[in-house]
Structure formats: C-alpha cells, structure tokens
Amino acid sequence: MILRAEWTKLHTVRSTAWLALATVITTTGLGAAASALTAGGDLAKASLSGVYCGQVVVVVLAVLAMTNEYASGLVCTTLACAPRRTRVLIAKAVAVTATAAGAGLLGVAGSLVAARILLQDKGFTATAGPTLRAAAGTVLYLGLIALLSLGIATALRHTAPALTTVFGLLYLFPLFGQLISDERWHARIEQYAPMPAGLAVQATTNLGDVPVGPWTGLGTLAAYAGTALLFGAALFITRDA
C-alpha cells in the first residue's frame, strides 16, 4: 500500500518525469560524444562515460524526493498516513531507486547503441561479456547513487545542504586525487572514494592492473549508500517529524 502511494507521489509531480528524461538524455548524449571522440583504449568505459553527467540528475531527483516533503511540510501528511516510518523510507527508497535505475537503463542502452554505430570500426561489440557487465554495473551504479542521495537527504532534510554533501562526497575526492602526486594516495582514492570505486565496474581492459575490482568497487559504493541510508533512517525514525 505504502509503496504504491510513494510511487504515485513521486510520479505525480512534473519534476520527476523531467529529471528522468534528463538522466536518459545526458547519459546517452555525453556517452555518444565520448564514443565519437575517444582515441582508443577502454572503448566500453568511454561509451558509458555519460554517467558522469547522468548521475548529477539522479542525485537531484533522489534528493528532491525527500527534501520537497520537508520544504512543503508534506512529510507530516505522509507520516500521518503511514506512521510506521521504516516502511515509509523503504517504500520511498524503492520508488526512487527504481525510477533512477529505469532512467539509467534507458540512458545506458542509448549509450551502447551510439557506441555500436560510432565505434564499430574500432572493434567495439556491445554484446561482449565485460561490456555487458560494465553496462549493467552502470545501471546499478545509478541506483546506488540514488540510495546514497536519499539517505543523505533524509538525514539533512534540506535541499541545498543535501545536494552540497552528495556532490562533495562524489566529486571532491577525485578532485583531490588530481592534486596529489603520491601514487599510493591516488590508488587509495580510486579504491575507497565512492565515485571512482563505484565506476570501477565500467573497466573492461587491463583488469589485472586496476586499483579495485569491478564488483568490489561497486560494493564499496553500496557500503556508502547503505551507511547513508541507515544513518538517515535512524534520524527519520527517532526525530520529530
């Protein structure tokens, strides 16, 4: 019941449809551009690099799904309808993640189609095992980004601080990584920072030489998302609405 209600709630505001569409367009668009411009190397990873842009939209979608309720005071209505708060948060997480991953799936599929057209002569095959793993992993990555964002938004309740925190968590570590010349620290950031670790799932070449394995990396991001969600849930359940 509550899942259906949260789904209806999410999909009866225009912003959700626009943001989902924007996720698809930016992921495919940037991916196609990268495919057109890539000089070679990991072609699958290049073709899926639209996720760098698509995830920004996913973060906004997931954060707004929660902070909009606090901004309008609607959260009180939500909790009056469904006083069992854990269920509310789970239902919202399912609705938001399914929407984000659904848009991500379309964006990734679009990226692969574009890569097939643009990279055929460079030897790209969309159906190769590692490429499919990279593609499926990217969809999961976007789903986990949605969960991470929702967890942080639940804890912070306000749009601006939540967006700042999520983007800081995603982009600041790689930014530091570029400034640090020490190789060991570079590898640690690749291994433990949520975005580089999560996107390790996109690697399809030189797999023996990466700082973190594809699924291990995605698992690291899942740990971040799980922690954020648990932290948000603990506050959501104990705090006054």
């Binding site: 019941m1 509550i2 259906r4 949260e6 209806t8 505001v13 309008s72 209505t77 309808c81 469904a82």
Partner: peptide, 29 residues
C-alpha cells in the same frame, strides 16, 4: 480511524488536487 487537517499549505504545488488525495488513499488501501 483518524482524519486530520494540520496545515492546509502542506501540499506540493505541482501536484494535482486529485493526485494529492490519491496517494493518501492508496497509502491506507
């Protein structure tokens, strides 16, 4: 069991009136 009006302004401005009540109805079957 309980119907309540706390803050009439607590609605999402972009949601249609019927949809606002629809999700509430769905949440309680």
């Amino acid at each position: 069991r309980v119907g309540a009006l706390l803050d009439a302004g607590a609605i999402h401005p972009g949601r249609r009136a019927r949809d606002h009540l629809l999700w509430m109805a769905q949440s309680n079957g």
